[in-house]
Design a binder for these strands. Structure first.
Lengths: 120, 120
DNA sequence: ATAGATCCTGGACTATCGTCGAAGTCAAGC
DNA sequence: GCTTGACTTCGACGATAGTCCAGGATCTAT
């Protein structure tokens, strides 16, 4: 499928998709007319990229994962390791957000109770 | 206190502190020699700024909060509203990270079980 | 065959958040 | 009085991640 349709399906802009390809995150074949020809399987892949990005992974690190993936099955252990490391990162983020929520709740409670600026 | 000490105490670089002032997030008096003269109370304030930033708030939005704060106590309701809105945002982030962690666990499980790339 | 939509590439531009350098000022110790 | 170190401003530079445009090619429908 062409970039327009692929963009609609994945919710990622065409400009961004070309940018991702330029960065090496996605590899796309061309049709005889020289246009990008995305496969069905690419949909899940870029959605995965999107999730990695949404959880704070830099494009440079996503590219590293991508390179492993395109290199074939023998890179599985490395990819697994990467995912596990990323999970640790995600868990750390969860702890961080929980702490911030508590902190914020404290501030809100101060506002509510005193009704005056408490150095905020 | 001067910018160097303030920077050490808050853990925010002097370049960044000047940048924040330029952006309107912090207001700092000058001593007779024209140097920035931070107060004790500013420490808590910039640490709060830091937390807001760490939780994804844009400097532009932090500036808005800052403007309200410097405007005085009559802006309390607006500030309260802002904090509540930010808490909603934080809770949304928590849901996002939780969902993402689950998703990642699924992928990891696929890797572990099949030992083969499952479209990742 | 031609109009209109879609696509191509390369490079320029934007936003966000810093980070740094140059040239000059100021204060404290010797 | 002079050196040294920390400070001042202003503007340039850099990383990250897009976003867009110009000019040209190609595809689809009439």
């Amino acid at each position: 499928m062409q970039i327009g349709e692929f963009s609609r399906i994945t919710g990622i802009g065409a400009y961004t998709l070309r940018y991702y390809e330029k960065k090496g995150l996605i590899r796309v074949e061309r049709d005889p007319g020289g246009r990008r020809d995305y496969r069905e399987a690419d949909v899940e892949w870029v959605k995965f990229i999107k999730r990695l990005k949404d959880t704070g992974m830099l494009l440079r690190d996503i590219k590293y994962y991508s390179d492993l993936r395109y290199a074939g099955d023998q890179t599985m252990p490395e990819r697994m390791e990467l995912l596990l490391r990323h999970r640790s990162f995600v868990e750390e983020q969860q702890r961080k957000w929980e702490e911030y929520r508590k902190n914020l709740d404290d501030k809100i409670e101060i506002y509510r109770a005193r009704g005056v600026s408490g150095g905020l």
